[in-house]
C-alpha cells in the first residue's frame, strides 16, 4: 500500500519535469534541413557550368554555413622557378587532404572571416592540407596559399561571405536560401553539400546531402571511347577528319587550307 502511494507521488512529481524537459528537448533537437536543386547535374554537350540552389531551415537565432565539397585525392603539382631568363617547372609538389572542389557560403559575412577554431572556410581547409615533395619547411604556408589561389583561379574553390539569405522566423524556424555556380571544369563525381548551423562560433548542428554530377549523352560516349577504346577512337578521328576534309575540299574545289 505504501509502495503504491509512493509510486503515485513519484509519478506526480516527475511528470511536469519530464514534460518540460521533453518539450524543450524537442524544440532543440529538431534538426536543420537542407535541399539542393537540382540534386543531379548532367554534363551534356552544352554544359557550361550551372547554378545550383540550396534551401534549408534551421532554428531561430543561428548562423549558417553551406559547404560544397568534392572527394579528396592526391593532387600532383609543379612548382615554377627561374632558370636563366626562363620560368619553368623546377620541382614536384604533392598535396593531400585537398577536396577536388570547395565552395563555401555563409549567412553573416563574419562567419567566414572568423579565423578561430572553426571547422569551415578557407582557414580550416588550409589546416587540413598536407604538402610533400620539393619544398622547404618554411615554404609550406606560402605554397598552401598558392594552392588555394590556383584552385580559385580555376573556379574550383570559392568563398562567398554573406552568400546565404536568411528569412524572418516563422514558428521558431528560419528559412535559408543561397546559390552557387558549379564550374564548367568540374569532374563527374558525387559531391557533398553540408549545412552547418552556428552559434557563437561553435557548431550546433550539421546536415549533409549529395549532389551528383554525371556525364551524359555525347560527351559520355566520347570519353568512354577515348579512354576505353583508344585505338578505335584514334581511327575514328582520322576517318572523320579525312571524310570531312574531302567533303569540304569537294565543296570548295580544293581551296582549303593546307
Amino acid at each position: 500500500m505504501r509502495s503504491l502511494a509512493w509510486r503515485w507521488l513519484t509519478m506526480a512529481w516527475c511528470l511536469p519535469v519530464l514534460l518540460v524537459l521533453g518539450l524543450a528537448g524537442g524544440a532543440e533537437a529538431e534538426p536543420a534541413t537542407l535541399q539542393v536543386s537540382p540534386d543531379v547535374v548532367e554534363i551534356s554537350s552544352f554544359y557550361q557550368g550551372r547554378n545550383v540552389v540550396v534551401t534549408g531551415t534551421m532554428p531561430e537565432g543561428l548562423g549558417a554555413v553551406v559547404e560544397v565539397t568534392g572527394p579528396s585525392t592526391e593532387e600532383h603539382l609543379m612548382r615554377k622557378g627561374r632558370r636563366g631568363p626562363l620560368w619553368m617547372n623546377v620541382g614536384a609538389i604533392s598535396v593531400t587532404g585537398a577536396p577536388s572542389i570547395y565552395l563555401v557560403l555563409s549567412s553573416a559575412p563574419d562567419l567566414l572571416k572568423n579565423q578561430g577554431a572553426s571547422s569551415w572556410g578557407f582557414p580550416s581547409l588550409i589546416k587540413n592540407l598536407r604538402l610533400s615533395g620539393d619544398l622547404k619547411p618554411d615554404e609550406h604556408i606560402m605554397f598552401k596559399q598558392q594552392f588555394l589561389e590556383l584552385k580559385e583561379s580555376q573556379k574550383l574553390y570559392a568563398s562567398i561571405p554573406g552568400g546565404l539569405a536568411v528569412f524572418p522566423a516563422e514558428d521558431g524556424r528560419q528559412k535559408i536560401t543561397g546559390n552557387f555556380w558549379l564550374p564548367a571544369n568540374i569532374k563527374p563525381d558525387t559531391y557533398k553539400v553540408c549545412l552547418t548551423t552556428v552559434k557563437d562560433g561553435q557548431t550546433v548542428d550539421r546536415v549533409c546531402t549529395d549532389l551528383a554530377v554525371q556525364m551524359v549523352g555525347f560527351p559520355a560516349f566520347l570519353m568512354t571511347m577515348a579512354y576505353e577504346h583508344a585505338a578505335l577512337y584514334g581511327l575514328l578521328a582520322i576517318v572523320i577528319a579525312i571524310v570531312v576534309g574531302a567533303i569540304m575540299g569537294y565543296l570548295f574545289k580544293g581551296g582549303g587550307g593546307h
Binding site: I238, A241, G245, M248, G249, F252, G254, G256, G257
Partner: peptide, 14 residues
C-alpha cells in the same frame, strides 16, 4: 594534328 589530317586531305588530292 587531327585537324590538319582533314585540311591536307583535299590539298593532297588536288
Amino acid at each position: 594534328s587531327n585537324q590538319i589530317v582533314a585540311a591536307s586531305t583535299s590539298g593532297t588530292f588536288a
